[in-house]
Amino acid sequence: MKKGTLKQILLITDGCSNEGEDPVAMAALAREQGITVNVIGVLDQYDTEDSHGLQEVEGIAQAGGGISQIVQTKQLAQTVQMVTKQAMTQTIKGVINQQLQDILGDGETVEDLPPEKRGKVMEVVDEVGETADLHVCILVDTSASMKNKLPTVREALTDLSLSLSARMGENQFCLFLFPGKRKSVQKVISWTPQLDSIKRIFEKISSHGITPTGPAIKEAVKSFSSLSRKQSLVDDDEAYDDGPR
């Protein structure tokens, strides 16, 4: 199988958007362009499980073809790397399912194969997940209610970088904060293979009351085209354009 690129947006937030475009629609827009949107809803022990905020978290991930997970702040690190890896597997499986349907006809997926054959397919999925290039654009909600959770978010992102850099494939990360200083979204780290040096960035941010989740997703989608333009100057890389099904 040809080595491809997996594109993901990872959104870390604690509640409802209240400004700009509808985030669910923006997630669907991302998926149209082959980008998976995963969402992690962060609660601390004092937060009640506000159903409206959680619905939005789930809705964004569903529209974006990704995974959503609600976690307590202290479990964040393990969840972030797990969600990212699971979403990769899901995307690769989506591609394989598509090809199986082309060969075997309607309704046939990996799950319908007998265990022995499925085992072989899963080996391929593992292999691709290990060697494929991965581009992750991380969006962190820095609105007022997130302020005391940010140190943990920072730790979780360093941990994510550690986990993914153990893979054989190449990684690219970029980091956006929303709301930004003057704009609704602020790019703080442009595409880079490793997320170190994020310590200082989280120290200087000031929190606002608004949460422009929709515009943030839109900006993230745009950033992928800037990366592929940058890379196409170097080489002609082919990307998976299929979202998971």
Binding site: Q78, E130, D159, S163, L164, A166, R167, M168
Partner: peptide, 16 residues
């Protein structure tokens, strides 16, 4: 060997 560790528990993980 050579791949990224599939599953781990934080306390026993050297990365942690």
């Amino acid at each position: 060997i050579g791949r990224s560790v599939r599953e781990y528990t934080e306390f026993y993980d050297r990365g942690y």
